[in-house]
């Protein structure tokens, strides 16, 4: 399927996979502060080029959100707070197995996240 067709169409997201990944994300966020040394892995894109990727700051953001520090979470990456809330909702409401979403939603979210990152580091 072409990129254009993917954006115009709908995507069937399997929520079981999202629940597994999300539960892993929450568990990592709870455990990471207990691990000595720096948390998370540096972004390869930012290390190589100086340009952040849309997911930069997510480890810090999700960890802060899980430890009820929304200010630090939003400062690192607002998407981390949204991710934590979304995963909690998925884990509470487990009856749905799939969700049909417009194909443009994830690319649009990533573009917004990248714009925010570029503003944050002073490139824009």
């Amino acid at each position: 399927m072409s990129v254009g067709a993917s954006l115009r169409g709908r995507t069937t997201v399997e929520l079981g996979d999202l629940r597994v990944a999300g539960a892993g994300m929450l568990a990592a966020a709870v455990l990471l502060p207990l691990v000595p040394g720096p948390n998370g892995v540096p972004c390869p894109l930012r290390s190589l080029t100086g340009i952040p990727c849309p997911l930069c700051g997510m480890t810090t953001s999700v960890t802060a959100a899980v430890h009820l520090d929304p200010v630090a979470a939003v400062a690192a990456n607002p998407a981390g707070v949204i991710a934590v809330v979304a995963v909690l909702a998925l884990l509470v409401f487990r009856h749905r197995r799939t969700a049909d979403v417009p194909g443009w939603t994830l690319p649009a979210a990533l573009v917004l996240m990248e714009l925010w990152q570029l503003v944050r580091v002073g490139i824009l």
């Binding site: 990944a21 390869p44 849309p54 997911l55």
Partner: peptide
């Protein structure tokens, strides 16, 4: 390269 985004893509 972009924080493993290419791996996480499969979730969507």
């Amino acid at each position: 390269i972009p924080c493993l985004l290419g791996y996480f893509w499969m979730l969507w």
